[in-house]
Nucleic acid binder design. Structure first.
Length: 261
DNA sequence: ATGGCCTAGGATCTAGGA
């Protein structure tokens, strides 16, 4: 079984790329982020033509997540509230960033973690609050679903070796100590980095800024992840980053990360 | 060079991304 995560930066702008990649990489479930489209305008037929079933949770212009699945999924849930209740979640479901569902005996959670803009900003505080809620959400889910694959765009590089030049980014957004601590608290519910089961090497990236020729110069970050509960971590046989789509014409700034188990 | 580039929405600019 294969599960991939990919921030496509608008599904309508990246429809041909996404379809082309799926045809070459027929994963069981493709988790998309930043679809940037309301559900009624999601290009569902374009995926049905390829034998896939989209489950969508989007909004106008910003954010938006989708599960593109080869088989029907069960117990599909959207937002934090479906698990935690409205009182705990407050306004955090106004932005569409969470969709989850069961595929076979695995529960897949697809996340688009807030960017945070700049350390100390209002959006940064929102990101930390969101991660605190995520921890409660995953702790609750883990009780119901022991085999959990939590993937998506986390907008956090867990370690310095996940950034091209960490020395001048000690308090940079996506690398700041508070963000990394918040991520570690999330993982402490019982999740481990699938990519790190297979290599300790630095220099593996999933996102490159559009600006300044960052991709050509390989100035990247590893911010897209697959986190696994213990039973799935044991079963994982590979976790790879497919850089190829980042080379295509008018690419997303992120590239797919594939987990196999 | 606290920038570069890209998307959506609505309009020739702004907000947001990371």
């Amino acid at each position: 079984m294969k599960v991939a995560t990919w921030n496509v930066n608008s599904i309508r702008s990246r429809l041909d790329h996404t379809r082309q990649w799926l045809q070459s990489n027929p994963v069981d479930v493709l988790c998309l982020q930043e679809t940037k489209v309301v559900d009624e305008d999601f290009p569902t037929p374009a995926f049905e033509e390829l034998g896939y079933i989209p489950y969508v949770y989007g909004q106008k212009s910003y954010n938006g997540v989708a599960l593109i699945s080869r088989q029907p999924m069960a117990a599909v849930q959207r937002g934090f509230s479906s698990v935690l209740g409205a009182d705990r979640v407050g306004n955090l479901d106004d932005q569409k960033r969470v969709i989850a569902g069961r595929y076979g005996d695995v529960y897949i959670v697809n996340l688009y973690v807030p960017n945070g803009n700049a350390v100390g900003s209002d959006k940064y505080a929102y990101k930390l609050s969101w991660l605190d809620c995520l921890r409660d959400y995953l702790a609750a889910l883990l009780e119901q679903h022991p085999r959990l694959n939590v993937c998506g765009d986390f907008n956090i590089a867990p370690e310095d070796k996940d950034i091209y030049n960490a020395d001048d980014k000690t308090n940079h957004i996506m690398a700041s100590p508070a963000e990394r601590e918040a991520l570690q608290k999330v993982l402490a519910v019982g999740l481990a980095d699938g990519f790190r089961k297979f290599t300790d090497e630095g220099g593996h990236f999933s996102w490159w800024d559009y600006r300044a020729g960052s991709f050509r110069r390989n100035l990247g970050w590893r911010i897209d992840h697959h986190y696994l509960s213990a039973p799935l971590y044991d079963r994982a046989t590979a976790c790879t980053i497919d850089i190829e789509p980042r080379r295509w014409d008018k690419p997303s700034d992120h590239t797919p990360v594939i987990l196999e188990f």
